[in-house]
Amino acid sequence: MGEVIVITSGKGGVGKTTTTANIGTALALTGRKVVLVDADIGLRNLDVVMGLENRIVYDLVDAVEGVCRLKQALIRDKRFEGLYLLPAAQTRDKNAVAPAQMQKLCDDLREHFDFILIDSPAGIEQGFKNAIAGADKAVVVTVPEVSAVRDADRIIGLLAAHEINEPQLIINRLRMDMVKRGDMMNIEDTIDILGIDLLGVVPDDESIIVSSNRGEPVVTEEKSLAGQAYRNIARRLLGEEVALINLETENSFLDKLRRMFSGKNNKRQ
């Protein structure tokens, strides 16, 4: 029986879709059978980020309404063995699906896949309720900004109200240089407020934007730091203990020199 994990955040634009695409791909690369479900009905993006937009025939709403069989709506990603996408409908809205239908959908998918990753829409309304309806577990994505952390806090409260306890946290788009200058919330502050387990930290990385535009998840890029972070997150989801990657990049000779003398910035993040 597979595990249903919802990826959610409350605030928009923090990287839920990118996170879903990359964790899903990374899990598939380890040989698991994975399906990515886009629950953002009416504003679908996951298909674009995965580069599968042009292969959509049926979508989630069609499958729920019985227009097609569930299997027909699933798009197999030919690049990665065992990776499938269930795209959202673009011409409908969140009310096209009810939580009970989503729950049934998740239970159907559970029988065929190891992991079912649900990309939740932003907000706390119907779309969010649909997305979490069938989930066993939740991953909350936030960026180190006060507003995003506030929304994540609200979401954690709502998840608890729906009996999805102990969600895990991904801090996305962290910029170590800004943290060091004291211009960005650091990892400790964020965890201190939210009080949930950290699943991973993903550094701000230009290659994410490039790969999203190309429709190729960044996890496939060996050299990308963000890609490495996502691969580690996938391994942690599989139960491995993986240390956080060192996000401090050596920018210049001066930096190195400074570090040699100060000694205290060697803390691994």
Partner: peptide
């Protein structure tokens, strides 16, 4: 437990929170 953003605890008497009260 923690009183998170969007949550509200009201009581006529005293309140003891065994946890945090977060912004919001």
């Amino acid at each position: 437990g923690t009183v998170r953003s969007g949550q509200r605890v009201i009581y006529d008497g005293n309140i003891v929170i065994i946890g945090d009260v977060n912004p919001g």
